[in-house]
Amino acid sequence: MPILQPIGRTFLSFLEATGRLTLFTVIALSHCVRPPFYPRLVVRQMIEIGYYSLPVVGLTAIFTGMVLALQSYTGFERFSAESAIPNVVVVSITRELGPVLAGLMVAGRVGASMAAEIGTMRVTEQIDALDTLATNPFKYLIAPRLIAGLTMLPILVLIADIIGVFGGYLVSTQKLDFNPATYLKNTRDFVEVQDVVSGLVKAAVFGFLVTLMGCYHGYNSRGGAQGVGTATTNAVVSASILILCFNYFITELFFAR
């Protein structure tokens, strides 16, 4: 059956890639928890991921909050249900849009630059040089990035939540004639701890996925500039897809009954 052969081959190479990624993840995680640690490098990555992503994540959040308020107004107006707008804004932002959009923006910003940096180090033999200087590249390059991604994304998302809700508030009060005090009260009444917590759990997972994909594709890049380019693309694409997949499953975990 010649038709089964390519299917089988694709399936095998998929299994192989999955196995390789799993092994990479296990090794990387084991180096995150075993000394020696490099606190200086962790802090540098935290600044890189957390601080420098603030503008792009903040802008994404504010416009998302604003457009959410506007769109739900045009929809709810028909049923005279405008009072649900604060609810819609805060729940969509904290549960879904905050973590997913921040994750996607960070994938584009941080995941790409990690893949490019580590990939360049690979093809210029800098990773080999690290090895010969008895410094484990997993410890020195990968663990600090994973730790920084895991910890900084929840903080970024928390800020994005606040900015996003503020965006909705801005449009509702300035354009849609909401009473500011009522809007805030409704927001506070509607939001539940679980909404925010699920969003932050998602953020931590996404931060891990983005940095993992950046490191994995960079570390395994081959060839020259072209190989690094491919690694960068793969890092961003795979991180984005994984974010959307995991988003569904974490949502199911938290909210499906």
Partner: peptide
């Protein structure tokens, strides 16, 4: 071991002296 790579393979995010001192500090 110490190794001089054919294309030097210096760490381009570190200064020259940090490159040379790398094995002393990290190793």
């Amino acid at each position: 071991f110490g190794m001089l790579f054919q294309n030097a393979a210096l760490f381009d995010s570190l200064t020259v002296w940090e490159n040379v001192a790398f094995g002393l500090i990290q190793g």
